[in-house]
Amino acid sequence: MISAMASAFTGMNPMLSGSWISLAWWVIPIVHAGLIIWAIVELTRNRSLDLARKIAFAVLIVLAPFVGSILTIVLVRSHARSEPARRT
């Protein structure tokens, strides 16, 4: 199945070889899983968020895994940076 799809893609674009397409079928899911794990770790490590916000971010990660994990990483990190500045 994958080799048939790779040959179809290489037939459309002569610059792509079959090895790059088959490599993408492995790399993209690994990067996606890494993003989800990274977002969950960032969410659990952040102590400045209350439980309701953590649950909201977790739901976002589950409902929109790729975009939700990127948004969670960016927003949780920006909240963690701005939180100590407001306390002092």
Rank of each mutant, 00 (worst) to 15 (best):
V59C: 06
I73V: 15
A4M: 06
M1G: 09
V31F: 00
S69E: 01
S82V: 13
R81L: 14
W38Y: 12
E42F: 03
V76F: 04
E42M: 07
S22M: 11
D50R: 02
H79W: 08
G34I: 00
I40V: 14
P84V: 07
R81D: 12
I30C: 09
S17V: 15
P29E: 06
G11R: 05
S69P: 02
A56R: 08
E83H: 15
D50M: 03
L16N: 08
M5K: 10
S7Y: 05
L35S: 00
I70G: 03
W25T: 10
W38H: 12
N46Y: 01
L71F: 07
N13P: 02
I55A: 12
A85P: 00
M15L: 12
R45S: 09
S69C: 04
M12L: 14
I2A: 10
L51Q: 09
V74R: 15
F66N: 04
R53C: 10
S48P: 00
G34S: 09
G11L: 03
S78F: 15
H32A: 11
S22W: 03
T88P: 11
S22V: 14
V76I: 08
M15E: 14
M12R: 12
S78H: 14
A80T: 15
A24F: 10
I70M: 13
P14L: 08
T72Q: 05
F9H: 06
S22C: 10
R53P: 01
I37P: 00
A39V: 06
R47E: 14
S82A: 14
N13W: 08
T10Y: 01
F66M: 03
D50F: 01
N46V: 12
L71C: 11
V31M: 03
N13F: 12
F66D: 05
S82F: 13
G68E: 03
H79C: 03
N13T: 04
M12V: 09
T10N: 06
V76T: 10
W38R: 08
L35G: 01
P84F: 03
V76H: 04
H79E: 14
F57A: 07
R77W: 11
A8H: 05
G34C: 04
P84W: 00
I28L: 14
E42T: 11
A4F: 04
W38Q: 09
T72Y: 00
A33V: 08
R47M: 05
V62Y: 06
W26A: 10
L71W: 05
I2D: 09
R86V: 08
M1T: 09
L23R: 05
L71H: 05
V76A: 02
L51F: 06
I40Y: 13
A39P: 12
W26P: 00
A52W: 02
S3W: 07
G34Y: 02
A39R: 06
P84S: 00
I2F: 13
I73C: 04
M5Y: 13
I36W: 03
S22T: 14
H32T: 11
A80N: 07
R53I: 06
L63N: 06
H32S: 11
T44V: 12
L23Y: 11
A52H: 05
S7L: 09
